[in-house]
């Protein structure tokens, strides 16, 4: 009985130390905001980058296609944390940009490669007759792409894109490596003050889980709504 009481007391103290004392929970809240911000911005930029790269690759030949292929190969063939290191400490080392901006750029570049492959597959899956019908009406290639092919492709690959952004959110947890105050880093900062990892680490894990599961269910709802218009 005594042991049990001891345990509860110690646990309550840990929670107090980690979250309440000196408003330490703000480390986690700020980190959470940072992680969400980086993910949203990188996902947004990643879609445009991915779209551009997918179209360059699809148009087949030439310098642009080669560049697109090289980019995809490099990004998919190296770890995210290494990309982050190279971009922060090598490519943008003299840029003077704040670390979270560099992190956003790095994750956008990272996500763009995966998005490009997803969108390329989506575009390829659109029936050839759609392009022919567009062109036969006198629409240009780019108009047909923009108004006909890409909307259909995006709709087809929505689940895959959603998954990519869930992965992206989890990947952003390495942003602390370059000093960005993201959610994982927030937990670590608390631990460095209290010398206890359990509460802050579990809290960070819980918050990540809440985010990913709500993204997944949001995605599900969106898909169902789109299928109703089918």
């Amino acid at each position: 009985m005594d042991g049990y009481n001891e345990f509860v007391k110690e646990f309550a103290n840990k929670i107090f130390q980690a979250l309440i004392k000196d408003d330490r929970f703000t480390y986690l809240v700020k980190g959470l905001r940072m992680s969400i911000g980086i993910t949203l911005a990188a996902a947004f930029l990643g879609i445009f980058l991915g779209l551009l790269v997918a179209i360059c690759k699809l148009r087949g030949k030439g310098v642009l296609a080669a560049l697109a292929n090289g980019y995809i190969t490099i990004i998919r063939g190296t770890p995210t944390v290494v990309q982050l290191t190279v971009i922060y400490f090598v490519i943008l080392s003299h840029s003077g940009l704040p670390d979270f901006v560099v992190a956003t750029i790095a994750f956008a570049i990272n996500s763009g490669a995966y998005v490009a492959e997803i969108i390329r597959a989506g575009i390829t899956a659109v029936d050839r007759g759609q392009m022919e019908a567009g062109r036969s009406l006198g629409l240009s290639y780019s108009h047909t792409m923009r108004y006909i092919i890409i909307p259909q492709a995006l709709k087809n690959v929505l689940p895959a894109l959603g998954n990519e952004f869930i992965v992206l959110l989890k990947e952003t947890s390495v942003a602390g490596y370059i000093g960005t105050q993201d959610l994982n880093k927030g937990g670590l900062q608390v631990a460095s003050i209290t010398y206890d990892f359990m509460v802050p680490a579990l809290c960070a894990a819980y918050l990540y889980l809440m985010l990913t599961t709500s993204m997944a269910s949001g995605l599900n709802r969106l898909e169902r709504r789109m299928h109703r218009s089918d």
């Binding site: 029936d127 022919e132 006198g138 909307p151």
Partner: peptide, 21 residues
């Protein structure tokens, strides 16, 4: 080509309507 194609309307066996519109 885009200008010339406007002169010739085409109807396909598989309709090829745009499903997103």
């Amino acid at each position: 080509i885009d200008k010339l194609r406007q002169k010739a309307g085409m109807v396909f066996q598989q309709f090829n309507l745009f499903p997103n519109l």
